[in-house]
Design a protein around this nucleic acid. Sequence first.
DNA 1: TTAGATGCAAATAGTTTGCATTTGT
DNA 2: ACAAATGCAAACTATTTGCATCTAA
Lengths: 141, 141
Amino acid sequence: MIDDFSPRTQRLRDGGHKLTHARLTVLRVLEDSGGHITSSEVLERVNQVDASIGRASVFRTLDLFTHLAIIRPTYLNSSITPTYVLMPNGHHHHIICTQCNQVIEFDECGLERMTAELETRFGVKLTGHLLEFYGLCERCQ
Amino acid sequence: MIDDFSPRTQRLRDGGHKLTHARLTVLRVLEDSGGHITSSEVLERVNQVDASIGRASVFRTLDLFTHLAIIRPTYLNSSITPTYVLMPNGHHHHIICTQCNQVIEFDECGLERMTAELETRFGVKLTGHLLEFYGLCERCQ
DNA sequence: TTAGATGCAAATAGTTTGCATTTGT
DNA sequence: ACAAATGCAAACTATTTGCATCTAA
């Protein structure tokens, strides 16, 4: 029996999804990561917390969270492993150096107006966004 | 001997990279794709055009183009295969439905000012950006 | 009670590597 | 001429699947 009614888990409950031990563990790992973490790292850390949780469940959970727009996979480093960014407030922004892959995060983006416009224009219901600038960092220029 | 001096290939020449048959073929495939194409599709189409081009070269080329900011890998559909978006003008924007993965592209983004601000603030040299909104499309709401 | 979620292990899929050979400049 | 890039095939890494079992609601 799991009785977590915190707001973080609301999106899960809302969708009619069960609040399982595996899912809560993955959520916890994502939150503790600070918001940038590869699937391999999630796998590793989940395994450290509870070795009885299987690989497949972790992937299924990452998939579910992506559909729920709780996280979003991006390519920060390797081209083979995605990095998941947490979207606690529905959005995430960063600059990534295409040379050394350094990531610089920043907060404000001022896209509220554009969000509203797009919703009207395309009849969609937007829950978040990812804004990624790329170029060369100070050292790589 | 390859004598393509079109602007498209300028970024390649500039970086001191050779204008090889394999690279031109991959570039062509990317351009013909309309701007959204998975690595597997690139592989397949390159193979159709010239079966003598090896898998490894295609991947090496996609990697190079990513570093040159000619393309950018994103996750549109599967979580196992990235989709490469072409950045002919340095940027790309779309809305993606987290339910059915439908992609709606749009052009304007008005991020020129923010680009300039970030360059000053962080001392970086930005060459482009990717703006991805997510939510539910008309049919999935 | 039962639909939904899980863990396992095997199957698939995707990407990278090392190296001898070729090619653009 | 020669550094850079290539093709090959094998190695490697990442993700998904099928299914019997378990569990949150």
